[in-house]
Computed example of a mutant assay.
Amino acid sequence: MTDGVEPGTVRPGGRTARVREAVLRAAEDALTEQGFTGLDLADVARRAQVGKTTVYRRWGTVTGLVADLLQDMAEQSAPRTETGSLLGDLTANARLVQRTLTDPRQGALFKALIAAATGDVKTAAALHRFYDIRVREWAPCVRQAVERGEVPEGTDPHDVIRAVSAPLYYHLLISGGRLDEPTADRAAEAAAMAARAGVFVRVGGKQA
């Protein structure tokens, strides 16, 4: 392991890439079925059909494995959609989040990861990095809306994107409400309306 580098954060190349893919998919399976508390490196190695020594040497800890899984999920996520309007872009974002959270496998996986993050600092940091990557991927659509004059100068792109996803995660984790496409569309419309009204404008580093 490279000095100062967490296990699981160095990207492998060549033949080891296949091992990484197998182990990460096995980790997804284990998390989906058993949750974070049931995640065990030896079990993941068995599922991936690789040696336990390889898994322990490569990832070191369960949190190291989860961090690498979240990094991979961020990189594999669909790129942003550009429709030419802020509402269209935010709707595409909301529907992507909605489809992900209602997918039988992905929804269960995110629930497990979020639950783990509430009690583990390193998992929480990895989850924060995941969402930071996704927010930065979609932020340009808000900047483009500023350039088109759809929303005021100084609108914080990251706050707008977060405002789209927040109610969808609320439905998933708290309210138990219906998380369907119309719900996603309403979240996008609310965020777009708030952005046009200047709710997300920051003045002097503070939100107006």
Rank of each mutant, 00 (worst) to 15 (best):
D3T: 01
G4Q: 03
G8C: 09
T9Y: 12
V10L: 00
E21T: 00
L24C: 00
L31D: 04
L31Q: 05
T32A: 00
G35P: 15
D40T: 10
D43Q: 09
V44L: 03
A45K: 03
T54M: 01
V55Y: 00
Y56T: 13
W59S: 00
G60E: 07
G60W: 13
V62F: 07
L65G: 03
D72V: 11
S77T: 02
R80P: 01
L87M: 09
V97Y: 02
T102W: 07
R105Y: 01
L113S: 04
A117S: 15
D120Y: 09
D120P: 14
A124W: 12
Y131M: 06
V135Q: 01
E137W: 02
E137F: 01
R143W: 03
V146C: 09
R148Q: 07
E150Q: 12
E150G: 10
V151Y: 04
T155N: 09
D159P: 03
I161S: 00
A163Q: 06
S165A: 10
S165P: 04
A166N: 09
L168E: 02
H171C: 08
L173Q: 13
L173G: 12
S175D: 12
G176M: 12
R178H: 14
A184E: 07
R186G: 13
R186P: 05
A188C: 09
M193Y: 08
K206V: 15
